[in-house]
Amino acid sequence: MTAETTPLFHVWTVSEVKAGTLTQCLGVARFIDPEPHVITVRRKVSWRNPPFSPLRDLASRRPPDIIISCGGKAHSHTILLARLCRKRPLTVHLAKPLPAYEDRYDLAFISRHDWMAGRHDRPNFHPVVGVPHRIDPEEITARRSEARARYAVCERPVATLLAGGPNRVYLYDESTIDRLLTAVRALAGDGWRVLICTSRRSPSSLQQTLAALADDRIVVWDCVGENPFRDYLAAADALIVTKDSITMTCEALATGKPVYSFDLAHGRENAHLEKFERFHADMSDSLGLTRRFEGSLAPYAYEPPLESRRIAAIVQRIALQTRANGKGEVTR
């Protein structure tokens, strides 16, 4: 879609303030509407609170043809927005909707690791490999030559480490951090040039500890200026991603290069830990897309998933069918 092309459909995205939920929405929306209207929310709609201010956007903006949402707090806002539109938009959720909303979305795209945890036999529910995101193989290919010229010095192969941060299921305890540092030093000693990029969730203590590794063989982004994340992906011959980030794992797979998952200490055994472990088992054991990091970065081949494109194509097809019906009826 070129900048001069008028999109067939105008998209609004409704997501939680978490970067991961917005990334999923924009990853799909950009293939339908290059300039979607973005709404982020912190809490559910409640009539005890002041009116939901983005609803006022309906009076001043082109109303949505499609609403793409992600995150549990986005449900109530999405359904209310759809109800208040003069012409009903297609509603799409990028996860398993909460039980109270399962019948209120036209389409839902559910990650395989969530799909395996329950029955999803509704015709408007679709399984997805991992999660959608905004990194595309074509972009990585276009960036690779320049990124390699900058980072692949002295003919060293490049290993990119994407580090997240502790969450409710994974810990960055002293032992885990020691293993991470040891792995980086070992790769550098084996001839790799290691590029390290932290995320928004990375604690400052982890950033500082990793930064202390920097030398001519190890490059650590200092969190100042433009994030080199995309160039680090494009330059890589192999990647390591800490297990706390599902999104970064899926983004790394857009490179087509080997992606290794770095294990972390476990917090409390709960459903969230089971979900993450189910995701990693599916990506490695079932699909052969990733492998567990055990010290080496041996090459292997796979076809990068194109889930953002695939989801967008399904959404646009259903939206076209609905428009053809002319009655706001969804053909699934």
Rank of each mutant, 00 (worst) to 15 (best):
M1C: 04
T2R: 02
L8A: 14
W12P: 01
E16S: 12
L22P: 04
G27P: 14
P36W: 11
I39Q: 09
W47C: 03
R48V: 01
P50S: 13
P54I: 02
D57I: 00
D57P: 00
R61F: 15
I66E: 10
S69Q: 13
K73D: 10
A95V: 00
K96D: 08
L98V: 02
A100D: 09
A108K: 10
F109M: 03
F109S: 00
R119W: 05
H133F: 13
P137E: 10
T141N: 00
S145C: 08
A147L: 03
R150N: 06
A152I: 05
E155Q: 06
R156A: 09
A159L: 15
P166S: 09
N167I: 04
D173R: 10
A186F: 05
D190Y: 02
V194Q: 01
S199K: 08
L206R: 05
T209V: 04
L210W: 03
L213W: 14
R217N: 12
G225N: 05
P228H: 07
A238Q: 03
L239R: 04
V241N: 09
D244S: 08
E251G: 12
L253K: 08
L253E: 03
P258K: 04
L273N: 00
L273W: 06
E274C: 06
A281T: 02
D282I: 07
S284H: 11
L287D: 08
T290S: 07
R291M: 07
E303H: 11
P304M: 04
P305Y: 10
R310T: 07
A312L: 11
Q316P: 02
I318L: 06
L320T: 07
A324D: 11
